[in-house]
Simulated scan of single mutants.
Amino acid sequence: MKAAILKAPGGLEQIDIVDMADPGQPGPGEIRVRIHASSLNFHDLLVANGGIPTADMRVLMSDGAGVVEAVGAGVDEFRPGDHVVSCFFPQWAAGPAKTPVGNFSATPGDGVDGMACEFVVRSAAAFTHAPKGWSHAEAATITTAGLTAWRALVGDGAIKPGDVVLTLGTGGVSIAALQIARQCGAHVIITSSSDEKLARARELGAEYLINYRTHENWAEQVLAITAGKGADHVIELGGPGTLAQSIEAVRVGGHISLIGVLTGVAGEVPTATLMRKQVRLQGLIVGSRQQQQDYVAALEASDSRPVIERTYALEQLAEAFAHQSSGSHFGKICVAW
């Protein structure tokens, strides 16, 4: 079967398309899935460019969507022909995060082989049903970006109608958060360095737009928009370079979801302000299988679809990562085969 692998850690030039042995038929508790699509995330990029070390010849990509071809003994949840989407933490069934999800040892495309291949045989718990009527590329956006936004706002944030959500940037997580927030009846403030991207975000329902290059102290803009109160929820994707302003921009007793590290992995935190405002700062990485099932159910009950800027062929995976690295995309980048 065809697969996209990382021959050796350290750069996009190490990505290669190879022929691998077919994984065969599923054993007890397993399913065989014909994978048709994946989507790119910052975590995948870090693996591909050597930012996160992994094994040589690792099959890439955490997200995978496809069709069940066969089920093993004892599998009742799926049957051949079902459309499914993978789980980022296949060992995390439900409940709060615990030790088994404290690292990426079981995450596809990192600790174990990923979804950038034609067929996989995995535990049935490594997948959920995909939303009915969605394309495989659309479904592939759920595993990492979509579920992260869902957990941040619904699972951890307990979002409610009338809340104000501030989300940073216009990548996959941020745009999913915008869509989820609007479905929940919340108001959305979004930031970007591009007026063109901000205009596109307005079309998706963002009510307040901030160009952070024009307004470097964008927290002041958030406070002005909210009459000094601040945002109820902040989708914090920048990391140390933006966290201080996010703390300024959130309301007293508000909630910040610390999701991204686009500006680095270490930096100063204004702890006095954090304490004074009694802010809940929640670090999170994706979510559980149960949360993914809840998210899929919510998607099926709405008319929302993910925003996919471009879909590449599997053979163009390195090119797709280069596009992602440029930061010029809006929403998700996918690969399909």
Rank of each mutant, 00 (worst) to 15 (best):
A4C: 11
K7T: 13
G11K: 10
L12D: 03
D16M: 12
G24S: 11
Q25M: 13
G27H: 04
I31Y: 02
R32N: 06
H36W: 00
A37T: 06
S38N: 15
N41H: 07
D44S: 09
L45D: 05
L60T: 12
D63A: 02
G64W: 02
A65T: 06
V68C: 11
D76C: 02
D82N: 04
H83T: 13
V84S: 01
V84E: 11
G95L: 11
T99K: 14
A126R: 00
F127M: 06
T128I: 12
H129G: 14
P131K: 05
P131T: 03
S135A: 04
A140Q: 05
A145P: 05
R151C: 05
D163H: 14
C184Y: 12
A186R: 02
A186I: 05
H187T: 12
V188M: 04
I190S: 02
A201N: 04
G205R: 06
E216Y: 02
A219G: 15
A227I: 00
D232Q: 04
G238K: 11
G239R: 07
Q245V: 05
I247V: 14
E248Q: 13
A249R: 11
V250F: 03
H255S: 08
H255Y: 11
G264A: 09
G267H: 08
G267L: 00
L274D: 01
L274F: 07
M275P: 00
R276F: 15
K277L: 07
V279Q: 03
L281S: 12
Q282S: 14
G283V: 12
A301S: 11
L314F: 15
L314H: 06
L314G: 07
Q316I: 08
A322S: 14
S325Y: 00
K332L: 01
C334R: 04
W337A: 06
